[in-house]
Write a protein that binds this DNA or RNA. Structure first.
Lengths: 119, 119
DNA sequence: TCCATCGTACGACGGTGGTCATATGACGAT
DNA sequence: ATCGTCATATGACCACCGTCGTACGATGGA
């Protein structure tokens, strides 16, 4: 039994059918949260909370993860002391086809443009 | 010279390349503004400000139209005493492919669902 | 010319949400 | 058992934003 995924449920996740467009858009409109989503989307696998490149305090980070979770954008589960994050792609795609992809893509595109302008 | 489109420019419209994802998402995250966008998207032609079904005061409406205009989502022009509104589809599609469609579609879908739940 | 209509400008108010500091709790490693 | 790490909870602060009322400006019709 070494280093395993804890089964304990986090209570906060909304059911797929309870994900609202309003919630998703509010969540994703924040730059820090959008950056988080982008990082998960571009990562090969799930990411621990601590591994994100964010510009705010840990406590503020916790706040943003909670908003993302409660809006139904991410799913979280414990793995030992760290907490893993994954996108709820299927649920989102079913509820709002094309939305997540469009936003992530736009976000990537803008990040690239910003990087270009910076040099 | 009867009932014509005034040529006067409204100064506020951002250039296409200055439309930011942040601005668009902030703008569209508000339910009143999203409703406005939806109404334009589903209308056969451009819509005058006064013809919208909105739940707020005229002055608040003006505020929302300004946000939409300055974010680059809509273009406005005068036609006599009323002000016409149109989506900047091309500019938006070029900047953020699929985004507008996904949001409008999701918005429609949700409106339908809400109407269903209401009866 | 006068009035009605449509939209804007400005100021005020209230709520919400992003931020941080600090303290607390859970888990793993030593 | 103890410590360090990871994340949360709580409370406070502040800025921003959605809202409204009122006053104003512009246009078109009677």
């Amino acid at each position: 039994m070494t280093a395993r995924t804890t089964v304990e449920r986090i209570t906060d996740h909304p059911d797929a059918q309870d994900i609202t467009l309003q919630g998703v858009l509010e969540a994703i409109a924040d730059p820090v949260r959008r950056s988080i989503v982008r990082q998960i989307a571009n990562a090969p696998g799930d990411m621990a909370c601590g591994t994100f490149d964010i510009s705010v305090t840990r406590s503020t980070g916790t706040h943003h993860f909670r908003v993302l979770r409660q809006s139904g954008i991410i799913r979280q589960y414990y793995a030992g002391t760290s907490k893993m994050n994954m996108l709820r792609r299927d649920d989102l795609d079913r509820a709002f086809p094309g939305l997540l992809d469009a936003i992530v893509e736009a976000s990537d595109r803008e990040a690239v443009r910003a990087a270009g302008a910076r040099r």
